[in-house]
């Protein structure tokens, strides 16, 4: 077993790094830059039942140490993804986490049935936290009973383990995590983006055509660390941590907080080589603190420092 390998339900990864959904297309764009088999896994862009065109442009706006996006779940639909996108990833022989979205329960269920049946898909990530479409699933992700209901139904039809991607746009994320754990989720992905907005002060006009968008990038990393730290103490599910990770040091920090694997999002836009560069550097950081296996990093913070859990 290599010192970087981690094992999560459905995801046997040679290292803990995978690109986050929506930040890596369906992989082929980055395959022009490096060998994708270096990655621990890939999260592909969200699938809906029918193809979606997404929101009008502008769809991105830069903010301090971050960016807002409102892409709007653009994708060719689950059939198109299974037929045209997934086969291109087969040669890399790495686990594929398929993100699924929808506007209705029925849509989630149908997409899950189809995509989880693909032999190329290792696990599914239930996206109940996209802030950028009117009916993009966040209505399921901000109330714990609806989240639990949907998780149960998706779980009952999925042929692969189900990770629920949690929204940070809630008053109590631990309550959400516990609800989906009780409903049978196999793991958690956290966090999705924080809803934000940017205006042109001269005209008052929002920069994004969608007006609001999801904030990502280093600006949100402390929020992600705090939420992973809290949730990992209350649930026993493995967590794929994400939110502003852009360096190997960030990966170590997020695993210390409680993540078992780490997804890299916005940083791929800044530096297309960021994932392989992080992977290459991790052993050096492990050496520096005398840790042999990277899996030992998960939850290290609380083990080392018996910090009282916040009262939230």
């Amino acid at each position: 077993m290599s010192r970087l390998s981690v094992s999560l339900p459905g995801l046997n990864m040679k290292n803990p790094i995978l690109p986050a959904s929506g930040c890596f297309g369906f992989g082929k764009e980055y395959a022009k830059w490096y060998d994708l088999s270096l990655l621990g896994g890939i999260t592909i862009k969200a699938a809906t039942l029918e193809g979606r065109f997404g929101n009008p442009t502008p769809r991105v706006a830069e903010t301090e140490s971050g960016m807002l996006n409102a892409i709007g779940l653009q994708n060719p639909g689950v059939k198109g993804i299974i037929e045209n996108e997934l086969p291109a990833l087969e040669p890399y022989n790495i686990p594929i986490l398929a993100n699924i979205a929808g506007s209705t329960e029925e849509e989630y269920i149908e997409v899950t049935k189809q995509i989880s049946a693909s032999p190329l898909v290792s696990a599914v990530e239930l996206n109940i936290s996209c802030p950028n479409v009117k009916e993009g699933g966040i209505q399921f992700g901000t109330h714990y009973r609806s989240a639990a209901d949907l998780t149960r139904k998706v779980k009952s039809v999925s042929e692969k383990p189900v990770y629920v991607k949690l929204s940070p746009n809630v008053s109590n994320i631990t309550e959400m995590a516990e609800a989906v754990e009780d409903a049978g989720a196999d793991g958690l992905s956290m966090i999705n983006t924080l809803v934000g907005m940017k205006l042109d002060w001269r005209t008052g006009s929002p920069i994004l055509a969608n007006k609001t968008g999801g904030l990502s990038g280093p600006a949100i990393k402390p929020v992600a660390i705090r939420m992973i730290y809290e949730v990992s103490q209350k649930v026993s599910l493995p967590i794929i941590g994400m939110g502003g990770v852009s360096s190997a040091e960030d990966v170590m920090e997020m695993m210390s907080a409680g993540a078992s694997a780490v997804a890299v999002g916005t940083a791929n836009f800044v530096n297309p080589y960021v994932c392989p560069e992080i992977i290459e550097k991790l052993p050096e950081l492990l050496d520096e603190i005398g840790v042999e296996q990277i899996s030992e990093m998960t939850g290290r913070s609380l083990r080392q420092w018996k910090t009282p859990l916040s009262s939230r």
Binding site: G22, G25, P58, R59, N268
Partner: peptide, 23 residues
């Protein structure tokens, strides 16, 4: 157009077309 990645992965800088099946 305002771009994110610049390499076709993030879908920030799309433009509608009637000449391709994808739209």
């Amino acid at each position: 157009e305002r771009m994110g990645c610049g390499i076709g992965a993030c879908f920030a800088c799309v433009c509608p077309t009637e000449t391709r099946q994808s739209g």
